[in-house]
């Protein structure tokens, strides 16, 4: 797993993908920060993160599209699957690499916090909750991206598919108001990833939400392992 993780991490910076993700993320969040904090003199950093939520739909596919699809495309999956490593460590290694890039980028945005701290009084506990929620949400989205990437050989297909999947998870919450069926709204509740972020947004450290995100991520990682394994058994 360590070997795969290290290779994947390095690959982010040997190809433009890592730079594009980090660059775009910081550029957009920097813009939001300037507009909603600096220019309006607001100490509420949560606003930036909430705005970034929508950007996630575009950014996460960049991060995950290559992960498994490219292995199949270049046939390097033959090396991985015939080496003495388990499918689980392949999937986890790749997930960890994407997660580290994501967390690294998020860590850079902590600069905004220090800037606010310099000139105002940010609500530390709320910002902590915001960040925690954002980390969990990001990991959940990455697991979805990884899963979609395992379904195809083509990076572009993986990117578009991931975008569609994330868009669905993002937008499904809107239908809650018009759905009256108990079962249906229960399902919507389960898959509405962004809805669970609302509590973090308000600064509430919600244990159910934490559990929800962790299990959501775990389920998609498990799905990914099943897909990789199934291909060999078909």
């Amino acid at each position: 797993m360590k070997a795969i993780f290290r290779r994947e991490l390095r690959a982010y910076f040997q190809t433009p993908v890592g730079y594009i993700f980090i660059g775009m993320f910081l550029a957009v969040s920097g813009y939001f920060f300037a507009v909603s904090n600096l220019l309006t003199k607001s100490p509420d950093l949560g606003q930036v993160l909430s705005n970034m939520l929508l950007m996630f739909l575009f950014l996460i596919p960049i991060l995950t599209m290559r992960l498994l699809s490219e292995e199949k495309n270049s046939r390097t999956d033959q090396l991985l699957l015939t080496a003495p490593v388990s499918v689980r460590s392949i999937v986890l290694g790749k997930f960890a690499a994407a997660a580290v890039i994501y967390l690294l980028t998020l860590a850079i945005t902590l600069l905004y916090f220090f800037i606010i701290n310099l000139y105002g009084t940010p609500d530390v506990s709320k910002i902590f909750c915001n960040y925690l929620g954002f980390v969990l949400l990001g990991l959940a989205f990455i697991s979805v991206g990884l899963f979609v990437s395992s379904l195809t050989q083509n990076q572009a297909t993986a990117a578009i598919g991931t975008f569609a999947a994330l868009m669905f998870l993002y937008a499904v919450d809107w239908s809650r108001t018009v759905v009256h069926s108990k079962i249906l709204s229960g399902i919507i509740n389960c898959i509405s990833v962004t809805k669970w972020y609302a509590e973090f947004e308000l600064g509430v450290l919600s244990v159910p939400a934490i559990v929800y995100y962790l299990s959501f991520t775990a389920v998609f990682l498990l799905f990914t392992m099943c897909i990789v394994d199934k291909r060999r058994w078909s």
């Binding site: 290779r7 390095r10 690959a11 040997q14 190809t15 270049s74 046939r75 390097t76 999956d77 033959q78 090396l79």
Partner: peptide, 9 residues
Amino acid sequence: ELPPLYLDM
């Protein structure tokens, strides 16, 4: 059949 090389390495 196709050597499994990572071309970016």
